[in-house]
Nucleic acid binder design. Structure first.
Lengths: 343, 343
DNA sequence: ACTTGACATGCAACCGGTTGCATGAAACTC
DNA sequence: GAGTTTCATGCAACCGGTTGCATGTCAAGT
C-alpha cells in the first residue's frame, strides 16, 4: 500500500536554486578579464601567483564553480565515460561496474551507466544516446553484431570487454583456461560424458567456453553435448535440466553460475542429488559459497576487467590514439562441493 | 596472467572521428537560417511543413545529430539525472538501479551512476561532481548527515530513497510492517528473546527496523537485544554470531539478507543448526531461495522504489516545483525455512 | 483597395566557458 | 641606452545550439 502525503506546492521562491555564479562575475570582482579567471582554474602557471590568488579568493567568496557543460562545449571534453552492460542484476557485473567507477574516479571522470536488458536494440539506442555526452565508451559483453560495434567505434573511442574484435581495444576474460581445468577435473573424477549448458548465442564468452569444452574434451577422449539455455539465468538453467539428463551426461558445465544455480534447483526437484549422482560446475564464480552444495566454479576476473577497460579507455582519450590492445585475463577452476567421482 | 598484444600506434588519420555536423552546415544545405534548423528539431510546429521537410532531408543527408552539450548550455537542461547508491555490489541495489534506468529511459533521460562505498565523504564528493551535469539527483540509502542532504537539496532537485527528511521528496520502503510480522511470527513460534543484528548506524532503514523490532516486541512482551554489525555484509554477519549467541536469544532478525547469510554461515561453523536450534530472519529478500536453508526474509520493494523515485524527480524537473511527497511502500514477511518453533 | 493580423522566417544576442593572438611592461642583452 | 626577449594579461572569436524580437508576406476583414 502507498501513503502519499501531499502538502501542496511550495512558493516559487523556495525552489529558487542559486543559479550559477559565472566566470564574468568572478572576473569583475577580481578586477581581471574573464580569460584570466579561466586560466586561473585551468593553467594557473600562465598567471602571476598574486593574480591567481586574488582570483581564487574572489571565486571562493562568490562560491564560483566552473560550469561543466560550458567547458565541455568549448573544449570538446566532458570528462564522462559510458559503461554499458547487458544486465546489471547479473552478479557478474556489479563488481565490474564498481571497479570501473573507481578507476574513472581516479582521473576525475564520471561514469554513465547503461543497462541493455540483453537486448541489442536497446544497446544500440543507448550507445546513440550516450555518444555526444561521453568521451568514450566501454561495452561489456556486448550483444551487438560486429558491424554495429565497428560502426560505433568509428564514431567514438570504444573499449570492449569480453568481445574480441581486431583493431578495437579489448579486455578478455579467458574462461577457456578455467573451463579446460574444469573438464580435466571432471575427467579425472571419471566422467565420460559431459553436458555444456550454453548461454546467449551472441555472447563471445559463450562461444569461447563452448569451444574450450570441446577442445579439452576431445583432447581427453570424452564426449560433450551442448544443451541450449538461451539466457543466462536461474530459470533458463532450471528449464534445461530435462534436456541435460536426456543426454545421458553424468556431469555438466554451465555457462555461468546463475544458470548453474538453476540447474542445481532443477536437479533437486528431480531428486538427482549433487554431487553424488551428478556433478555440476558453474562459471564466473559470482555466487561464492552461497549455494547448497557450494558450487564448484570457474573464477572470474570481472573487477580487474572493469578497471583495465576504463584505464585503457582513459589512455586512449589522453593520447588521442588507438592502440590495438588485446588484454587477456586468465581464469582457474575453484573446486567446492558440487563435483565428485562418477558412479 | 596477462597477455598484451601491442600492435603499435595507428596513423592519426585512422582515428579521425567524423567530427560533428553542425546546425550551420544543415542550415546552409537547406538554404535557411540556423534558427530554423533549430526549430525544425525542437518546435517543428512553428515552421511550415515544407520547410521542416527540407531541413530534415538536408540533416539526414549530412548525418546531422544535435549536439547535446550545446543544447544543454543554452537551455540549462541536460537530460541527465544522477543516482547515488552506497554499494552497487549489494544485491539490494541492482534491481533498483535497473528500474530507475528504465523509468528515466521512458523520458529520454540518462542515468549517472555513483557508488559511494558506504563512505559519506565519497558520497559528498560524488554529489558535487554530479551537480552541474545532472538536472536532479536520487540519493538511495544516503549515508550523509541531514545537514549535508539539505545543503545539496538547496542546490539541485533531490529525491531520497529510504531517508525521511521533511520537505524533501522521498520514497520509503517501510520495512517496519514486515519486521513487525517477523517478530509476530517468531513469537508465535514460541521465541521469547530475539536478537537484532543491526546495520549502519547512519542508515534510516536500520533505525526504522530496530525501532519496529522494539515496538513489536514490547507490544508482545518479549525481549530484544541489539547486536551491532556496522556494515551490511556477509562478514559482518559472520563476525556477529558470537555476540548474538551470548545474548541468549533463540532467534535473530538481521538488518539485511547479506548479514543474515553471514550469520547463517557463522552459526553453521558453531554447529548451531538452523532452524531447529536457532531461527533466523533476513531483510530485503534479495537472496531468494538460494541460501541453505532458504532464508525467511522481509520482502523488499527496491524496484518500485527506484522507479517511483525517478518518476518523482522527473515530475519535479518538469513542474519546476517541489512537492513534499512522502511515498511509502509497505513490506511483508516471506516465510521460508530458517524459522521454526523454539525449543 | 487598405488595414490588420497571423504566420513563417531571419537576425543577433546569449548560455559560460576556452584559446590564439595582440599588447604593453618589465627584464635582459651588448 | 636602444633593441630584443619574456612574461602577464586582455581582447575577441569560437564551441553549437536556443530564443526574443523584428521583418516581410500573404490572406482575411471591412
Amino acid at each position: 500500500m502507498v501513503v502519499e502525503a501531499e502538502k501542496g506546492e511550495f512558493p516559487e521562491s523556495m525552489i529558487k536554486r542559486t543559479k550559477g555564479v559565472t566566470i564574468s562575475q568572478v572576473a569583475e570582482a577580481a578586477g581581471v578579464a574573464r580569460s584570466s579567471v579561466s586560466r586561473a582554474f585551468t593553467r594557473p602557471d600562465m598567471l602571476s601567483p598574486e593574480t591567481v590568488e586574488r582570483i581564487m579568493k574572489a571565486a571562493e567568496a562568490l562560491g564560483y564553480v566552473p560550469n561543466h557543460t560550458a567547458r565541455a562545449l568549448s573544449t570538446g571534453r566532458h570528462g564522462n565515460v559510458g559503461l554499458i552492460v547487458p544486465d546489471i542484476a547479473n552478479p557478474f557485473f556489479p563488481p565490474m561496474i564498481q571497479a570501473a567507477q573507481l578507476e574513472a574516479d581516479r582521473s576525475d571522470f564520471c561514469i554513465f551507466l547503461g543497462n541493455t536488458e540483453e537486448n541489442p536494440k536497446q544497446e544500440d539506442k543507448l550507445v546513440g544516446r550516450f555518444a555526444g555526452q561521453v568521451e568514450g565508451l566501454v561495452l561489456a559483453s556486448s550483444r551487438l553484431s560486429d558491424e554495429r560495434i565497428r560502426a560505433h567505434a568509428g564514431k567514438l573511442p570504444l573499449v570492449l570487454i569480453n568481445r574480441d574484435l581486431d583493431g578495437i581495444p579489448r579486455v578478455l576474460i579467458d574462461s577457456g583456461s578455467g573451463v579446460r581445468e574444469a573438464v580435466e577435473h571432471l575427467v579425472k573424477l571419471g566422467h565420460r560424458k559431459i553436458a555444456y549448458v550454453s548461454g546467449p548465442s551472441t555472447s563471445w564468452s559463450n562461444k569461447q567456453r563452448r569451444s574450450a569444452m570441446r577442445a579439452a574434451a576431445s583432447g581427453l577422449g570424452v564426449a560433450v553435448e551442448t544443451v541450449p539455455a538461451v539466457l543466462p539465468s536461474y530459470n533458463s538453467g532450471r528449464n534445461a535440466v530435462g534436456a541435460i539428463l536426456a543426454t545421458g551426461a553424468t556431469a555438466a558445465v554451465a555457462f555461468d553460475d546463475l544458470t548453474a544455480q538453476g540447474v542445481l534447483a532443477g536437479l533437486a526437484e528431480k531428486r538427482v542429488s549433487v554431487p553424488s549422482d551428478f556433478s555440476l560446475i558453474g562459471c564466473d564464480d559470482v555466487l561464492g559459497a552461497v549455494t547448497y552444495p557450494a558450487l564448484t566454479s570457474v573464477s572470474n576476473r570481472s573487477m580487474e576487467a572493469g578497471r583495465v577497460a576504463v584505464s585503457l579507455l582513459l589512455d586512449m582519450l589522453q593520447s588521442r590514439a588507438i592502440r590495438d590492445v588485446r588484454y587477456v585475463l586468465e581464469t582457474h577452476l575453484v573446486v567446492r562441493n558440487t563435483t565428485a567421482a562418477a558412479n
